[in-house]
């Protein structure tokens, strides 16, 4: 279990994390979703003891991370964003090292190494130097090194960045297996679809703050089954806003000279009405994108921008 209360981490005047609070429970996958620079990695850094929080409380499996860091870290497994492996060593030796630094000893360590190698599909390449591995294999080994000691809390910081689709699917399966086996999983990502497919509960983070939190259903409910309609073309923003204000149930999320973003129910049926109103406002629509309610549309609704912007 991870308990984070009013966590703040500042670098001078810059608040990288600003009052973040959440609880990730045993056996669930808790997602931290947000764009690059939102404060996800800083939050994980504070929980893992890598960074000292400016203020707030952090507990991992009941251990205070600041006061009783060693005990907290004993329960932790971390899969960092970068591939933190020794290229010169084999997969087996890497696992032996990372298991060893977590305090594991043979023969338990040896058995566990074989188990995670099998789990990650690397058993046949166990004795090969890691530098000969493909990117996906390295990602899987990076994951394996985080779980070799069977941690009660597993934190994964964007583990699928730069991974081919096949390896990504395999990695996500492995993460689910960890949660099923009783681990508390904290998963950070900026991929909406990954968060939707994987996480039991989510916190959406932007500029160091949590802007929404709950289960996927709870977050979708915040959108009230509204679709996201994106119109591209040339617009006069104020005139467009004025024209759309006259149509019931339309929320203008964003309006600039090249695009409009609208949130509305049953958008497909109301397209002619919208085009007509915009034409009267002197707008020229050249492209239309309709998105069903999703985390992406929630993020845009909450922040007025796309997650990858």
């Amino acid at each position: 279990m991870i308990e984070v209360a009013e966590l703040r981490k500042s670098y001078g005047d810059l608040a990288a994390v600003d009052g973040v609070s959440f609880t990730a429970r045993t056996g669930e996958i808790f997602g931290l979703l947000g764009p690059n620079g939102a404060g996800k990695t800083t939050t994980i850094g504070c929980i893992s003891g890598l960074l000292t929080p400016t203020s707030g409380h952090l507990r991992v499996m009941g251990h205070d991370v600041v006061r009783d860091g060693t005990a907290a870290r004993r329960t932790l497994g971390v899969v960092p964003q970068e591939i933190a492996l020794y290229d010169e060593l084999s997969a087996e030796e890497n696992l032996g090292y990372w298991g060893g630094v977590q305090g594991m000893r043979d023969p338990v360590l040896g058995r566990r190494i074989q188990a995670v190698l099998e789990l990650t599909g690397l058993l046949d390449r166990a004795r090969e130097p890691v530098k000969r591995f493909s990117g996906g294999m390295k990602r899987r080994l990076n994951f394996a090194c985080g779980i070799v000691h069977q941690p009660k809390v597993l934190m994964l910081d964007e583990p699928t960045v730069g991974v081919d689709p096949q390896s990504r699917v395999r990695l996500l399966e492995l993460v689910r297996e960890q949660a099923k086996s009783g681990a508390c999983v904290l998963y950070t990502t900026h991929y909406m679809e990954e968060a939707e497919a994987l996480c039991d509960r989510l916190a959406v983070v932007d500029h160091g703050k949590i802007i929404a939190q709950g289960t996927l259903a709870e977050l979708r409910a915040m959108l009230a089954e509204h679709d996201l309609l994106r119109l591209q073309g040339s617009f006069r923003p104020e005139a467009a806003r004025e024209a759309l204000r006259r149509i019931d149930g339309i929320e203008v999320l964003q309006a600039d000279e090249s695009q409009l973003r609208l949130s509305l129910a049953a958008a497909s049926r109301r397209l002619p009405q919208i085009f007509s109103a915009l034409a009267e406002a002197g707008a020229e629509v050249r492209g239309t994108t309709l998105t069903q309610p999703s985390l992406e549309s929630l993020f845009i609704k909450l922040t007025g921008k796309e997650l990858r912007e």
């Binding site: 893992s48 003891g49 890598l50 060693t70 005990a71 870290r73 004993r74 932790l76 971390v78 960092p80 964003q81 970068e82 591939i83 933190a84 492996l85 020794y86 990372w98 630094v101 977590q102 305090g103 090194c145």
Partner: peptide, 13 residues
């Protein structure tokens, strides 16, 4: 640069 040092810092060692 590889991140192995930070990874070590996240362990009890």
């Amino acid at each position: 640069t590889r991140g192995t040092l930070r990874r070590v810092a996240c362990t009890p060692s």
